[in-house]
Design a binder for these strands. Structure first.
Lengths: 192, 192
DNA sequence: ACGAATCCATACGGGTGAGTATGGGGCGCG
DNA sequence: CGCGCCCCATACTCACCCGTATGGATTCGT
């Protein structure tokens, strides 16, 4: 430990700033995304930041774009590999339930829905995911109107769960309670 | 129109500030709760505010307390009058669905779950409402474990719906689509 | 090796919003 | 009538944070 407590050093790239921004958003919310605080975190000063980005909002936009692109590629990409449509929904539920880490940014963005830059991103992501659920429910045998409503209900339950248990940390479910809840959700929402 | 465009005048009381604060929270979120902005809204200056309240946080706390107390008295009080437990849940769903106005503060508070003063309030409110749903589901015939999980699922769906359709304004449901969604929710979540 | 491009530090200006100090005006009450 | 208390205006200070200006340091191309 010859220099700082943050072992990062040497030159930075725009990607470094964007990833650090996403980390900051996940930890302390969009409102805490300040350039001087980020610079401290990275062991540099504002002088560095304003070389890579035109403004604070430009960084936020870049970070959101990166997050959205990553989310589409990772979350939905894996699921579409599951061939059997009947197994797709339960498997989706179980996988999503056990990857809590990637949802931290999503939960933080849910709390920043007043910010103009956040709204269109969340609108696109929510729309795509709901449509994905809708086709999955149709493949599972629901008629179109029911599939649409069930998709909306499912995604609302997902978002609400994030808010209540993740952000609020409300009932602090242990592992068994959590699994029990997920299986109950599968039994209730997915048609037999 | 001899004076201001805001027809409020004469001396103010602490209650006036708290109600104006809740209005501001509902309209522009907790972050927009600034004392100078509120003072402008009420047609006075900061000098007035700091006579009634010690700080900005004191106002926020008072407003939250008022909202929590009002919510318990109004929302849950009406529902408990419904005698038949079988009719209680569908009736609850339909009533809650058609009173969107009282939910605006709740939706705004959902976006302020990083604020230390907001978290305990939301934790208490969510806990009470989930427990209310749990007993209602038990009265409707579910076994205890299922009643608990179904209550959590229902409340999560409620919270997520607020976030997606209220705050985000996503699919912009019209009246028929909205009713269709509510009835689908009743058919899916409430045991026959 | 040496100039040029890249990356960063230092220092400053400006805007915003919380909190304080202090005095003045309205209103009840004797 | 005039005295005192309640309510509010004015005018500050202070802290924070965005953005700019400019020069220094490091690295890369050739």
């Amino acid at each position: 430990m010859d220099s700082n407590h943050k072992p990062e050093r040497t030159r930075l790239t725009a990607e470094n700033w964007e990833l650090a921004a996403l980390q900051m958003i996940a930890d302390h919310g969009v409102g805490a995304l300040a350039v001087e605080a980020l610079a401290r975190e990275l062991g540099v000063t504002k002088g560095s930041f304003y070389w890579h980005f035109r403004s604070r909002e430009a960084l936020l936009q870049a970070a959101l774009d990166r997050w959205e692109e990553y989310g589409e590629r990772e979350v939905l990409g894996q699921i579409e590999k599951i061939a059997d449509p009947r197994q797709r929904l339960p498997e989706l539920f179980r996988r999503v339930a056990h990857e809590l880490q990637p949802h931290r940014v999503y939960a933080a963005l849910l709390k920043a829905l007043d910010h103009p830059l956040v709204v269109p991103v969340m609108a696109r992501v929510s729309k795509r995911r709901t449509e994905f659920l809708e086709t999955a429910y149709r493949e599972a045998g629901l008629v179109p109107r029911e599939a649409l409503n069930r998709a909306r209900l499912t995604y609302a339950a997902y978002v609400g769960f994030l808010q209540l248990n993740f952000t609020l940390g409300l009932p602090r479910l242990n592992h068994d309670e959590f699994d029990s809840y997920i299986e109950h959700m599968i039994a209730t929402l997915i048609p037999a």
